[in-house]
Each structure stands twice: as C-alpha cells, then as structure tokens.
Simulated assay, not measured.
Amino acid sequence: MKYMLLVCGDDTADASGMTPVEPWVEGLGDRRVRLHGHRLATPAEAVTVRVRDGEVLRSDGPFAETKEYVAGFDVLECDTLEEAVEAAARHPVAAVGAMEVRPFWEDEDADAAIRALDAELTSALRERDVDRVVACYTPDAVEFRDGREHRGLGALRKAMEEGLGHVTGPVTREVLDFRVHIDESIAFGQARVRLRATRADGTPIDDLLHITTGYRNVGLRWLIAHEHVSAHTEERS
C-alpha cells in the first residue's frame, strides 16, 4: 500500500545538528520502499487560492500561520502502516520537526484498469475499428514502429488506417506476456504480442513483437502515451 509522508519542519527548532537526509533516501530507495519525493520551497513562497462567489481570492503565504510547515514529501510503498511509521521515524527531520504518515485513498485498481485498456486494444484491432484503437491513446501520444515515428493522434490514425487497409478479415492480437509497473500517474508495460492477419493478396501475417508502453493517468482513465514496437528476437514456440 502507498503512503504519503509529509515532512513537517519547525522554523523555531535548531536543525544545525540534524543528520543528512541522503542516506535515508538512498537506503529506502534501494529497498523500493521510497518511490519518490522532493523538497518544497519555503512557506514564504506559497500562494493560497480561494474562490468565493465566483471570485478568485489569492493571498501570498501558506494556508495556515503556524511555526510548523510542510517542507517536503515522500511517497512510500509499505506492507503495513507500522512499516511506514518506522520509515518515517528514521527520517532526520523527525528529530526536529514532525512526520505525517497518511495512506493513499484506494479507489482504483490501476493494474486492472491498464489490463482492461490492453484488452480494449485487442478487441478494437480484431474488429479493425480505428476509432476505438485511437481512443486508447493520449492526444500527444508517440509511437515508434518499423523505424518510423508517429506523433499525435492524427499521425497514429493515418498509420493505423494504412496498416489495416492492407489486410482483410479480423486481426488477432495474442498477448503472450504482459508486465506492468505502476506509479501514481504513470506506468510502464512490457509485452510479447503475436499479431496475426491476412493480407489483401491472401498471404498470412504472423509477427511476434516486443512492445514497450508508457501509460498516463489522465484523471478518469489510463491511456497510452508512448509505444515502441519491435520484432521479438526469441524463437517462436
């Protein structure tokens, strides 16, 4: 489970003797407990925004006037809350400030959503439905295939229409192996895919492909933002 670790500094505390944070970052990073994080600028550089009766109200400074402030954040992935608390307790700022550990709101199975997107791509190709295929990609998606670059939905659509125009009947896309690594808003997938179809002249197509895919969470769904397709070098079984 993922946890947000809010690193809260105290502008009245003496931090001169605080140990460096780099060993903590490197140690948890090596164990894949700390996924990423960053320091934040000081509260003096913050801007607080409110909207009242349709009017945008902007004020310089933090939301709350307090000696404690959020100085940075880290995203942790731990099996239990206790493990996340232990990691927070080892952070150097815990000795002079405070660490807030808060679980991520779990309202989506990202792995299932990405695999459903891949299944939709398979179904759309089988039906040779270009609109459904293109709908699986972000507007600024980039695809590399056969030494050619297709950038943006217009180029993707043209390449797809050209490719499907040379085949007849359904296109079979068999996913032999599919692995996904997911972060909060991006994900990377690697797959071996066998693509079968029949050319207009009756000759068969039977390609074994290696596909590396970059996904982006666009808010309500995951879409493909980057795709690299190449011939797989392993022998076919």
Rank of each mutant, 00 (worst) to 15 (best):
73 F>E: 06
114 I>T: 12
138 T>S: 15
142 V>N: 08
78 C>P: 03
121 L>H: 08
73 F>I: 06
143 E>P: 00
82 E>C: 11
131 D>C: 04
149 E>H: 05
63 F>S: 03
154 G>E: 12
78 C>V: 04
88 A>K: 03
76 L>R: 04
126 R>A: 14
52 R>T: 14
81 L>F: 07
127 E>Q: 07
158 K>G: 12
72 G>D: 03
96 V>T: 07
129 D>C: 06
56 V>A: 14
77 E>W: 13
146 D>Q: 06
71 A>M: 07
84 A>K: 03
160 M>S: 13
56 V>T: 09
146 D>W: 09
45 E>K: 02
148 R>S: 14
62 P>N: 08
56 V>E: 15
74 D>G: 05
100 E>Y: 00
70 V>K: 06
52 R>S: 15
151 R>Y: 10
159 A>G: 10
147 G>L: 07
72 G>H: 02
46 A>H: 01
133 V>R: 08
124 A>D: 13
154 G>H: 10
154 G>F: 11
144 F>T: 07
122 T>K: 08
56 V>L: 12
129 D>K: 00
142 V>G: 10
47 V>E: 15
134 V>F: 12
108 E>P: 02
59 S>I: 01
84 A>Y: 02
158 K>P: 02
100 E>Q: 02
127 E>Y: 01
149 E>S: 11
168 T>Y: 14
101 V>G: 03
160 M>R: 12
145 R>C: 13
112 A>I: 02
66 T>A: 06
148 R>Q: 14
86 E>K: 07
109 D>F: 03
96 V>R: 00
119 A>K: 08
91 H>Y: 06
118 D>H: 05
148 R>H: 13
144 F>W: 12
45 E>S: 07
140 D>K: 04
56 V>K: 06
136 C>H: 08
100 E>G: 00
159 A>K: 04
61 G>C: 00
152 G>S: 02
154 G>Y: 10
142 V>T: 09
140 D>W: 03
112 A>C: 05
158 K>T: 12
130 V>I: 10
117 L>P: 05
104 F>V: 05
147 G>C: 11
83 E>H: 11
110 A>I: 00
77 E>D: 15
101 V>D: 02
84 A>P: 02
148 R>W: 13
164 L>M: 13
85 V>A: 13
124 A>Y: 09
101 V>W: 02
117 L>Q: 12
81 L>V: 03
79 D>C: 11
136 C>D: 13
80 T>G: 15
127 E>M: 04
156 L>H: 06
86 E>S: 11
54 G>E: 09
165 G>Q: 10
47 V>P: 06
168 T>F: 15
78 C>A: 14
49 V>N: 13
96 V>P: 01
58 R>H: 09
46 A>M: 02
77 E>K: 11
138 T>F: 09
128 R>E: 11
46 A>Y: 01
112 A>P: 00
62 P>K: 03
102 R>F: 01
143 E>W: 05
129 D>Q: 04
109 D>I: 03
118 D>W: 02
43 P>E: 04
124 A>M: 07
130 V>N: 08
83 E>D: 13
125 L>M: 12
105 W>F: 11
121 L>V: 05
141 A>D: 10
84 A>V: 05
147 G>A: 11
157 R>S: 14
114 I>E: 15
97 G>A: 01
122 T>R: 10
42 T>F: 12
50 R>D: 15
45 E>A: 08
91 H>C: 07
124 A>H: 07
82 E>R: 09
54 G>L: 05
57 L>A: 11
104 F>M: 08
131 D>W: 00
